[in-house]
Design a protein around this nucleic acid. Structure first.
Ligand code: MN
Ligand code: MN
Ligand code: MN
Ligand code: MN
Lengths: 222, 222
DNA sequence: AAATGAATTTTGATTAGCCTAAAAATTCTC
DNA sequence: GAGAATTTTTAGGCTAATCAAAATTCATTT
């Protein structure tokens, strides 16, 4: 049985090398866990002793197959709970992450599977992130960030990169959510801001910072 | 913010003086928590320093108003989660307690209230135990243990005293659950066992040990 | 009111998780 | 490839939660 903390470390390592990297540096882990490199070193030794990570002094840490499986299950639980909170308890997408951070540690295989059934085996969570199945497999969708599109392009929002409360609330204000249709009316070259039509409403200007964080499925040909 | 452990201590104290007692002895708490008296003493000092309990050396411990409120909320969360697991995820009543022991520590007021709504503000959990409302109030029903009834008496099962997996599974085998109608066909004076008719099935013999643990609402006059 | 036995508290240790500061290893720069 | 800068590890220490064993207090019986 792993502690809450150990589980969070495994998830941190997973997240780090989900982003291209094939090894998680001590400092990167420390940053993600909001702790010190010294604490990370201690924990890596402990997790290595339990065969959950492969840790090499000064070289960094990778997940062992077991560690990888545990991390994937945590992601699965996290995303299923987020889906439950939004779909069944009517929470808004910016509220659920913080609660799911707790719920993901509940230990019961049967509970996860029942929850998955109850939600009709969802493939994506309220932020558009893929939910691994019981075997840890998930399929990525083709998606493109809004700032990569051109004038005249159309698409549907299928995910967000940034999950911050603030960012998501801003999207709520703009009436932008998963499934929202967006059409690029104009791009301002000077600051890369983008004028878009949102569903069937009047056009709105989005900064480049915002547009980089919106993932679309293109719906026009080009 | 309280630790998982601190919360469990508060709940243990609550449970102890739910059973008549007006003060929880160090040993009683130690037994409930499966720990030593020494550990309990340490924790009582800590909880007293946080004004969650009133602890007097050698005299025992009581809950402060704050401590009582926290304990009641824990019970509320525990019973709501148990209800969720049975009503929505189709768990059986003997499976839910162990999972609810984890879920009760999830910290989110909004989550509890949403869950309560979602379940249609249930008044009783899957074992027939009352669920405190948001103000910590609950109403006890009039109930009588099966072993207190007489030949010819009829009733409906509305609660169980013992919550053990084993006991509940035995009731499942007998097709006895909350809502089951029971009628006393005969009482054996020698060993106090009771012959009952279960719903509309043939009669079954229950030992006194079993009958003491079944709470009924009487449905005949007498 | 002393003696005895039970309950409770104190004492001294241990483990997990964390930290700061110092030391060591690695990587970068010229 | 030597020295500087950065990263990582080690050393030493702290707190929360736990325990076993010793000491103390309380309750009961004579
Ligand atoms: Mn999340
Ligand atoms: Mn998510
Ligand atoms: Mn229970
Ligand atoms: Mn219950």
């Amino acid at each position: 049985m792993l502690s809450f903390t150990e589980e969070n470390y495994l998830k941190a390592i997973y997240k780090i090398y989900e982003k291209e990297k094939d090894v998680a540096s001590t400092n990167a882990i420390a940053e993600r866990m909001s702790t010190t490199a010294a604490s990370v070193t201690d924990m890596m030794k402990k997790l290595a002793a339990k065969n959950l990570v492969i840790y090499e002094k000064y070289k960094g840490t990778r997940l062992s197959p077991t560690g990888h499986q545990i991390a994937t299950t945590l992601i699965r639980k996290h995303r299923l709970w987020e889906t439950f909170l939004v779909e069944k308890l009517d929470f808004s997408w910016e509220e659920v992450h913080i609660i799911a951070e707790q719920l993901e540690h509940i230990d019961s295989d049967k509970l996860i599977e029942r929850l998955d059934d109850y939600l009709d085996r969802p493939k994506y969570d309220p932020h558009g992130d893929p939910i691994p199945n019981a075997e840890g497999k998930y399929t990525l969708r083709e998606q493109i960030a809004l700032n990569q599109l051109y004038k005249g392009d159309k698409g549907v929002l299928i995910g967000v990169k940034n999950h911050d409360d603030q960012f998501l609330s801003y999207l709520n204000d703009l009436k932008i959510g998963l499934g929202t249709k967006l059409e690029i009316i104009d791009k301002v070259m000077y600051d890369k801001s983008i004028k878009v039509k949102i569903d069937d409403q009047g056009p709105v200007l989005l900064t480049e910072k915002v547009s980089r964080n919106l993932f679309l499925k293109k719906t026009n040909q080009n």
